[in-house]
Amino acid sequence: MAARTLSPLHPQRILLMALLLLVLLFLAFPVYFMLVTSLKSSGEAYRLPATLWPHNPTLQAYPFVIKAWSYWRTLGNTVLVAGLAAFGATMLGGIAAYGFSRMAFTGKSLLYATVVGSMAIPAMVTLGPIFLAYKDLRLLDTHLGLILVFMAEGIPVAFLTLFSYFKAIPKELDEAAAIDGGSLLDIFFRIIVPIALPGVAVTFLLLFIAGWNEFLFAFTLTITPSTRLLTVRLFEIPIRADANTIPYDLIAAGGMLILLPLVPILLRVQKQLVEGILAGAVKE
């Protein structure tokens, strides 16, 4: 690319750098503003005009939200539901992807098209009947019910991502193991999964993040506060007894409490996440 050969102070290069910084500012500013708003005192948070940084930084909003949301319990619910669903979808989708990457069978392309085609059915279209069925099956307001829905939601992603990882593993490896007398599932868990472990882990993380962020099903299929998940809490603004202004500091602190647990994942496995996103979307 031409820009690399330009001197650092070339006008074109400066212009491009400025554009790049502008883009990054646009992407980062809302998150920055959420962070600083969560660190403001309740008085400063709704003082107008709004301030760009907290003048007297304080953490007082956090304990309030943690208590109002029963944060630790809600966090536990979210980790449980998103984690088990991500695990289940990774396993089922992975085993299916293994079958597709290794075997020829009747109706293969039809079944492949079925999985991919099912991605064109909007969640909203399935929500009503699932809600009515859950009412009859007593799955409403249960974590099991949510886990099943999240698993089904995650299967195409798990399938497509792992399919592209498994296709890259040479068949000779599992054929050799088959001669040694291993069953297919045996080969899958002892040979394929360890080799594709980075891909399997990234698939799990992608689905975990998706479950963490899911709102529509989590909101509609739960009723009592003790079964609710984190994103749903965003709809319940904690209110201070003595104030009738919108508590921006509390809303922002709530947002931070939903975002923060994911930040270590972003920092530690950033490259792998990007690879996983690409493996799921861009085939071949």
Partner: peptide, 10 residues
């Protein structure tokens, strides 16, 4: 990745 990792509602 920050906007990507945030829930749409968030």
């Amino acid at each position: 990745l920050l906007p990507w990792v945030m829930a749409p509602l968030l």
